[in-house]
Simulated scan of single mutants.
Amino acid sequence: MPSTALDPVGVAGRRAAWDTVMTGFVPGLPALERVIGTVTEGLHGGPPTRVLDLGGGPGLLAERMAARWPGARVGLVDIDPVLLALARTALPGAVDVIDADLTAPAWTAAAGGGYDLVTAVMTVHYLDPAPIRTLYRAIRRILAPGGLLVVADLMPDDHAPTVMRALDPVPGEATAELAWTQWWGELTAAAEFAPLLAARSEVFRDRPTAEFAGGPAWHAQAARAAGFAESGLLWRDGRHAALACRRT
């Protein structure tokens, strides 16, 4: 990834804007974070010791988990050079920022193991069904016994795999899409991001978004096939939902 020094004040503003964009897509994300925290502490009888956020982007969820559990070692995995640079600039030393491809076996070696909690929030829809199943097997291997996987994404009620483009639009979605486009457009206009954006184009040049959206039943079945004996719906907000899977 290019070595680019970013302005910390500007990075803080861009991360705050990213947070606004994401809650525009899924207004219930703050509630989901609270549920994840409460359930994790309940299962472990207190704070977790190791936490990992997959597809963690600029590190907002990882940062909040580190603040909630200051004694825990918190990390994030992502592949986007722009988002990784934002996370590294904002969170030096507070969060382990790992540049790794979740579709490549080597990511587990980079992440290590023994995690009490692994989250994947708005991440797996970028993958096709087969890589999601492989990812679930890999996550189970890096979880500690009794560890929890929380997958939150577009999970329609019909419990059948579909494609997001085929789903009916919902109120506010067009506004969120516009905000997403504007966020990236502002980065394109900033000279300091030019090397990172060039690197990003190379990373995603042959990596189209799958736009897969399986229902909770599909994800539960994939988790069982990966070796998770327990799973259940943790949260729902419109078409988005979170499934919790526990390693026994």
Results as ranks from 00 to 15, higher is better:
Pro156Phe: 14
Thr103Cys: 05
Thr134Gly: 12
Arg68Gly: 04
Thr134Lys: 09
Tyr136Glu: 02
Gly147Cys: 05
Thr175Asn: 05
Gly214Asn: 08
Thr89Gln: 12
Gly42Phe: 11
Val51Asn: 02
Gly113Asp: 15
Leu32Asp: 01
Thr123Ser: 03
Ala5Val: 08
Ala244Asp: 03
Pro195Asp: 13
Trp107Val: 08
Ala104Gln: 15
Glu230Phe: 14
Ala189Gly: 09
Val9Asp: 12
Gly227Gln: 05
Ala242Leu: 04
Cys245Ala: 15
Leu102Phe: 02
Pro47Thr: 12
Leu43Trp: 12
Gly71Leu: 07
Asp157Met: 11
Arg14Asn: 03
Ala191Asn: 04
Leu196Val: 10
Glu41Asp: 11
Thr108Ser: 15
Ala16Glu: 12
Arg68Trp: 08
Asp168Phe: 09
Ala210Ile: 11
Ala111Asn: 01
Ala120Trp: 14
Tyr126Pro: 00
Arg165Cys: 00
Arg50Gly: 12
Thr162Trp: 06
Thr175Ile: 04
Ile36Arg: 01
Ala62Phe: 04
Gly56Asp: 00
Ala223Arg: 10
Ser231Val: 10
Val97Lys: 02
Leu60Glu: 13
Thr175Pro: 00
Gly172Arg: 07
Thr4Cys: 15
Pro156Ser: 11
Thr123Ala: 11
Arg207His: 01
Leu91Val: 05
Asp80Ala: 12
Ala90Gly: 13
Ala31Asp: 15
Phe212Cys: 04
His125Arg: 01
Ala226Arg: 14
Gly55Arg: 12
Leu86Ala: 07
Leu29Lys: 03
Gly10Arg: 14
Val151His: 09
Asp128Pro: 05
